[in-house]
Amino acid sequence: MKFLAVRRRSPIVGVALLLLALIGIGAGYAAVVSARPAEAAAVNGLQNQVQQGKELYLAGCSSCHGLQAQGTSQGPSLIGVGAAAVDFQVGTGRMPLAAPGAQAMRRTPQYTQDQIDQMAAYIASLAPGPQIPTAQDLSYQGADTAEGGVLFRTNCSQCHQAAGQGGALTYGKYAPSLMQANARQIYEAMLTGPQSMPVFSNGTLNTKDKQAIIKYITAMQQSSNPGGLSLGRLGPVAEGLFLWTAVFAALILVAIWIGIKAR
């Protein structure tokens, strides 16, 4: 310290301090300035995403859902359906609709995930609605399969069948099979209630309950068929039909062979 105390009045100290102050101010300014473009970019990015989503929407969806997503006689209003509904409907290929009918079918998605995200951002910008579930929402690995089974059998199995194979509703509508659905789609379907399906909001079945249901469905998707051909896992009806058609046809062929006179 003595070294500094002796030299503090040296003319070079003033210059050094000035230099230090200038560097400090410069660095501080640079930090502030460099932070601002990042924020601005994020805002701009979202606006861009919404803008691009709007363009995709106008080109692909507005003929049925209306120019302002207000809905027409051909399609429902999308105001307030939320990003999750867009991600589910377009991500499973149900929208854009292949053909008018009782129900939209699962198909290969017609848009890339980036485009779906853009349209989801546009629809979410119109009015608040269910958000796309986060990775944390979807971390179902620790969930309770048995609890999921109880909730699935109580609320889901009567339409989707106890093994998740789907089933008939009224007037040509049906509950689809869940064997293709991934965790995100199952979560979004519960959250938004697509088509005839009722909404299972986080108020009625919370995130933990939804994760348990996803775990149960995943367990059914992954389970093998130890007994042989699953026949849609529909149980005795499908098995009886198989016996009365395929097996009986084979038996009739054998009976015909027995009856043919040997040459």
Binding site: L151, P198, V199, F200
Partner: peptide, 21 residues
């Protein structure tokens, strides 16, 4: 209460279009 979890329900928990056993 919700069947299975036995959580009591508030009106705000159930959205329009919602259903629960």
């Amino acid at each position: 209460v919700v069947d299975g979890t036995y959580q009591p329900l508030k009106a705000s928990d159930l959205p329009v279009g919602g259903m629960i056993s």
